[in-house]
Design a protein around this nucleic acid. Structure first.
Lengths: 196, 196
DNA sequence: ACAATAATATGAGATATCTCATATTTTGGG
DNA sequence: CCCAAAATATGAGATATCTCATATTATTGT
């Protein structure tokens, strides 16, 4: 097992190229992308500390590998599959851990999926802002967010400006300051199911 | 371990009620639903033979249980969790099998998610029709499909009628007959990524 | 066999979202 | 420090999709 380091914006895995390693992220953030035939590129998910990368390829002989690009510096473990594949697949503790990770991943995806179909951007953006804000400050890159929420830049900005007009957010140079988190919460809560 | 049978339209798991069993489907089909605060109900996924039900609750202490309703008669194994939970979580063969199942589930969800955001109903419906058609005959219930694809009945029908107008489909009483599968394939192929 | 309920169907107007065109500002590399 | 590329901004018109209203046909329970 090696410890590896990737710089910001480096590709850990190229789309379509089966990786030879299983990665476990110690520190940093990354993004998973897929490209469609018409050239459209879609941001599928974020990867954070304690996530696995390449677990699909460990488990499935046939699998279309998505691209993984770092968005900060990343430090991770890299376990060579050719050597440890069999051993990993016989290790109960590892399997249990991986199963938990995958079940969370599947659940979150299912949630995002049904939310994306059921609610307009207004609600999903409110949720995203609250989830990614650092205290009162929201400062994600617009382009990345559009990708992630799967909407056009134009429409995204339209809704963001509305939030400002309504006084939910205040634009401060490069950042946005959350002014009425209660209003945002009301919008975001619509996404939640009855359990909350 | 028991063998259980559920009739059509029965609820195997009620939303929000933690199940006491892990199920493995031998035969039949079911649907997973979630209800939002505003009362909107969303069909998240289909369950088919060889799928697990309740695996999330086996793995995660905290998990909001989705509702599962049969759409045909279902025959399944039911494994009582209070008795076998620990043993299951130590069984390598079972864990490996479950991990594979979950990785497929996560992948499919991710695919559906990014597709739903990236393409209009026209493409997604073409894909759905081809995937669920029995030979040349498509006969899913409109209401269920709307739910699944996350669009209004009105819009769904609008697009379906277009397919008929264009001669892709021919309405025959209750069913639809696929007349130009090539045209549908062209629409559906846009969803595929470069790997295909 | 009948009534109630669910599914199918259609129209019209509103809203959400996209595409394209274009301008300004910020940022990274040499 | 300068340039090219990326990110941010804004307008206008097109399209996808939703909501609501209202019929007509199946299906189901009794």
């Amino acid at each position: 097992m090696e410890v590896r380091e990737y710089k910001r914006d480096e590709w850990i895995i190229r789309e379509g190229m089966r990786p030879d390693y299983l990665y476990y992220v110690i520190e940093g953030k990354a993004k998973i992308y897929v490209t469609y035939q018409n050239g459209k590129v879609s941001l599928i998910n974020f990867i954070n500390a304690h996530d696995y990368i390449g677990e699909m390829e460990l488990l499935n002989e046939v699998y279309y590998t998505k691209g993984v690009q770092t968005s900060t510096k990343i430090i991770c473990f890299a376990i060579p599959l050719h050597h440890y594949r069999t051993r990993l697949l016989e290790d109960t503790t590892f399997l249990r851990e991986l199963t938990k990770f995958l079940s969370m991943k599947a659940t979150k995806m299912a949630e995002k999926y049904s939310q994306s179909l059921s609610f307009p951007l207004e609600n999903r953006l409110a949720d995203f802002i609250l989830q990614t804000a650092d205290g009162e400050i929201y400062k994600e890159k617009h382009v990345t967010v559009c990708d992630f929420l799967g909407v056009s830049y134009r429409h995204f900005l339209h809704v963001l400006v509305q939030f400002c007009d309504k006084g939910y957010l205040l634009k401060e140079g490069r950042h946005y300051c959350i002014r009425q988190s209660d209003a945002l919460h009301r919008l975001a809560d619509v996404l939640k199911n009855e359990s909350f």
